[in-house]
Write a protein that binds this DNA or RNA. Structure first.
Lengths: 221, 221, 221, 221
DNA sequence: GATGAATGAGACTTCATTCAT
DNA sequence: TATGAATGAAGTCTCATTCAT
């Protein structure tokens, strides 16, 4: 239905100057995308914003889509790195803490560059490599699935995949909305608490009312 | 930063034939948008798909943006109508049933035209009137807020707005993902059950197993 | 090795105005090609020369190559028509007269638009439909082969195809050179005589001087 | 109408290594021209094919035109050399043998690099020095004119220039066509014989069968 | 000398929009 | 009113050429 253009960078820069040019171009792409939207982000405008000639842009990226794809890849990479390292650093073994860690990591990821994320999700046509903006959610799902599988005995679901599917779509979308609208911007703590609460109530057998705030150990019975 | 062009239909058609033309154009817009994506959906192509001349198209819509805006409005209207009437028809007073009714209504709404919804959300630049694709979620929030306020005494949250915010973003995004990926397409029942479960667990104080009027474990049955 | 672009006219004009536009474009193409050469003949320049907007040009021709291809086709058609009708009109049955008729027809054909023919042969890359400039020589060969086959008994060759091959390349190239250099421009008669002479001497068994119905030496008189 | 840029090599290389570089560039030009056509033969591509940097290319050739002109010159030179030395080596004094020698020399010349010759004749714009591809035919004409003048007494024409004009365009074009189409590729002998036959029949007073040193009918044997 | 990064004019092409018929 | 021919600004991309390293 649609053509898939060449998508990979045209030339690996060998000199430091060239690498600086490539970086400037990618960062300018992000800037222009955020400021003007995808439709108005012409390659000429991007080159101008990067302070390079249009020829230089095309020396490194064979098409507009390749350029945006490079940006998508970088952005996804940064978000994933953040989540991954947060999970790696903390790796707690008790579910309530785990949940909070995960939620906080996601909030941090979506705080990285919310406006860029928004444009990438909401305006860039999802053709060819540009689909890879969804890599974030897919790889996120993998990590969460793995994470939750390791906590399997504390979770009430037998079909973990289904639970992961729900959470992987529910939680980020709430975070995204909160981050985008800036409604809750001032108070990530409340957001994190609420989401963690939702997540735990969804995943875990609920504790009895008289005792602890949550008793996970009973829940896993 | 961006211009806001004229947005409203240029003339209200008074004859039935004219109304038919307008409808044909709007429906053709939906078709072309879904099949070719926003970028390739030129006004000429749309006119051709509608079986009218490009001149006629511009007789009824002063710009491409007005045309797409009309489509957005119609689409949002149809989705909202579905939710509203579902809630009106059922209006139960007990929360578990209410939740299920709401979830089912939302599933029905997102099933109306998922591909169009996707293009409208993911490709159409969010300028001017085209932002109104978000009207759906805003108005949905209002309705849910109202609905839930009427059930306030069954809900554990004091800050209802925050709970609504969460649910209004969490639930539709799960539904949208399920509907789009067709992963759960064959089984709306399971999806509805799971979402209802999540919603109730989130909203309701779960009583201890011996004393409560209902148990979460029953809900997920 | 090379891509073959779309080549056929995009839209059949329905109004007289449109046909006039198409004609103006094709004629302007010929003019610009002759004056500026293929490399400098940009579509913008052609549109300007035709007195139409660049958009109009692309309404009827999907690419520069399609445009030139249309010109090639028209040009070949006109040349072939000229040769064909000349041969049809004259259809003599004796070889000397036939040869002269053929040579004269070819001279007329190459006089139609020598400069255009030159550019088309010498600068236009022979990709895709643009190869069809050679259609002229191929179809010419067919006609001559047919023509000469009907005169077979007056020709000394057993392998007529080989003789046709020679003549079909030898005669036009001499004419083209003569027409292009304008060296012999003032005197087509001499050129025709000389070529006819060459042709007959090549084709015909030369009888001995006392017995033959004609002698080669007489032919060149 | 067209600008004539600098055309001569920018610097005469004095070191062997530099000469090797120049040669590599010119040969790469030939290769790229043949493989990709003139339009796609960019200077960068040529430099790459030559294994040198684009900077080095411009160190030796001030422009693309100068580069192609150097190739044209070399190619013409090689073709002319071949013809000249063939004629010098053989220099027979009787016409039938002379004719055959000439035809064979031409076939050899056109076999040198037919594809390059084709591109040079059919695609390269004939501006400035690039016209010099026609030098071959002009200088060829001179040589043939000289050659035939020395055989004047065996030729029936009083206006030798006219005969030379005919032959100089007729014979090469047949050879070129044969060589290009590969139709006759396997059998240069037949081609040579046929062309020699045509040439002699055209040039020579045909003697009567009883008295002449040769008869045309024998020539075609 | 050699390298290759950088340049930018200009090519081709699209498409929202206007307007004569 | 309906048609579709016409418009032209603006977009993507190439490539001959320059110049700092």
């Amino acid at each position: 239905m649609r053509e898939i253009p060449l998508m990979h960078p045209r030339r690996r820069p060998r000199q430091a100057r060239a690498q600086a040019t490539v970086d400037a171009i990618v960062q300018a792409t992000a800037r222009v995308l955020v400021e003007d939207g995808y439709d108005r982000a012409s390659t000429n405008r991007i080159a101008q914003a990067a302070g390079v000639s249009i020829g230089s842009l095309y020396q490194y990226f064979p098409s507009k889509e390749a350029l945006v794809a490079a940006l998508v890849e970088e952005h996804v990479h940064r978000m994933l790195d953040l989540v991954t390292s947060a999970l790696d650093d903390a790796s707690p073994e008790e579910l309530p803490d785990s949940a909070r860690v995960l939620v906080n990591a996601l909030i941090a990821a979506y705080r990285l560059d919310p406006k860029l994320h928004q444009v990438l999700c909401q305006e860039v046509p999802k053709i060819g490599e540009l689909k890879r903006i969804y890599d974030f959610e897919e790889k996120l799902a993998e990590r969460i699935r793995h994470y939750m599988t390791s906590l399997r005995h504390q979770i009430r679901h037998q079909n973990i995949d289904r639970a992961v599917f729900l959470l992987v779509h529910a939680i980020p979308s709430v975070i995204r909305a909160a981050v985008e609208t800036d409604t809750e911007a001032k108070n990530d703590g409340a957001l994190a608490g609420e989401l963690t609460d939702m997540m735990l109530r969804y995943l875990v057998y609920v504790p009895s009312s008289e005792s602890g705030s949550y008793k996970v150990t009973q829940l896993s019975a």
